[in-house]
Design a protein around this nucleic acid. Structure first.
Lengths: 238, 238
DNA sequence: GCAAAAGTGTTGGTATTACACCCATGA
DNA sequence: TCATGGGTGTAATACCAACACTTTTGC
């Protein structure tokens, strides 16, 4: 198994058996009513023209968390990333041809009110209709979507998809896009309010062009990830 | 940053900047009414005499999953491991002195009716009162306990701690030990039955020496991990 | 019979969904 | 005034914990 891309120089040994480590992130955002992922199109082999997740090699003096944040800063502003979390390690020996690279995969979230400047090779793609992806990046992205969908149910992770202030209707549209099915605004507001994750700002905005009652603006009480529904069952005694 | 343990030979370059990868597992079992972890005592530096998690270097042709199963087979029989799952990546540059080793951590579960033969340097220790541990292994173990506690609430993961057949009282003791608080046998049976995770075998066993009604034997309907409480809220429409 | 342990019935409380209904605005 | 979307009230259901009660054994 020789490395066909960067042949070893005269004084270098073949290090293809040495495990390299990369970090990758499935960065998603709700845009135009559906969940989109940030992908860049590869120019060079392997997998030319296919779409890949942002990421890169782990540096010697960084954790996987700091590494992925550093590398994403080249694609999107770090301040725009409202949440980053580890997903899993992907380590099939053949996941990258002719090399041995283990990947630590992350989920990254961007609120819907920001529209980062993207490099020319980079674009948003709907997660439910991905283009041809490189390596195992589709699997990583789908794992990220599953994680997001689960956490929408028992945490306040919605804050990471939402702007600082929003109407319940806007929040419902975000949840619907991420979950893939229609969510009731009525019940969404009640669930999040009962759990103390949501609060009214007291402000309202003007009604839309077709009329209707002017909606109130809400915010998440915390913009850090919190588990709001610990212990569905078998909870410890009070 | 030189490697003080295996100094580079004459023709070798200093590779201490190259990221090595290891796999580690927090292997736990309920023994004598409390959750115990499998640890081995280090003889050599770094951290001599401290207790460490089983694991080792990732091989060139294996995934992290197959690697940890291979390495655990040296400590405990793989057939005795009823469940193995990834926990997280631990990657602080200083987590192992003088080396750069990224670890993929796993949680491993062993049912309470097996008592593996252990090497001389290996022993079970209560997770709530660990001895002095090496590196970041205590953090890994506590993360594993948290994962187990969470999954006891919304999956059938109890199967991995229990023997093939058991009474509800025995199962209650397993859950109590793993969760760290008393669980009601009455409600435990009802929750797991309602979810279809538990079923009666039809058999009963003799009562204990102090009398009492002879308990019935139950089994888990599946011995693969299944999420039994998907979507606590915001569930998709029927 | 009595103590002990297992298992069932029942009740009160809470969480959640669905749906009816009221509210406030633009046209 | 009416259509429209926002928001509240409420009923039906399901789930859960706690506890009373019954069952079946050993002594």
């Amino acid at each position: 198994m020789s490395n066909t891309n960067t042949p070893p120089g005269p004084r270098e040994r073949d290090t293809s058996h040495i495990t390299g480590h990369e970090v990758l992130a499935g960065v998603v955002q709700v845009r135009q009513g559906s969940l989109k992922a940030l992908l860049w199109q590869r120019a060079r082999p392997p997998h030319p023209n296919r779409w890949a997740l942002p990421g890169g090699r782990l540096g010697p003096d960084e954790t996987v968390e700091s590494s992925i944040r550093r590398q994403l800063a080249e694609k999107v502003d770090v301040r725009e990333l409202t949440h980053v979390e580890q997903l899993a390690v992907f380590s099939s020996p053949g996941r990258v041809p002719d090399k041995r690279i283990v990947a630590t995969a992350f989920l990254g979230l961007i609120p819907c009110d920001t529209d980062p400047e993207l490099p020319d090779d980079t674009a948003w793609h709907p997660v439910e209709a991905l283009p041809e992806t490189a390596f195992d990046h589709e699997e990583i992205l789908l794992a990220g979507r599953e994680r997001l969908r689960s956490k929408l149910s028992y945490t306040n992770i919605g804050f990471a998809l939402a702007p600082p202030k929003f109407t319940v209707s806007e929040l419902r549209d975000l949840y619907s896009a991420a979950l893939g099915y229609r969510v009731s605004a009525t019940n969404l507001q009640r669930v999040l309010s009962r759990r103390g994750a949501l609060e009214a700002t007291g402000e309202t905005v003007a009604a839309g062009p077709s009329g209707g009652r002017p909606p109130a603006l809400f915010r998440f009480t915390s913009r850090d990830l919190q588990i709001t529904d610990r212990f569905a069952v078998l909870r410890p005694p009070a």
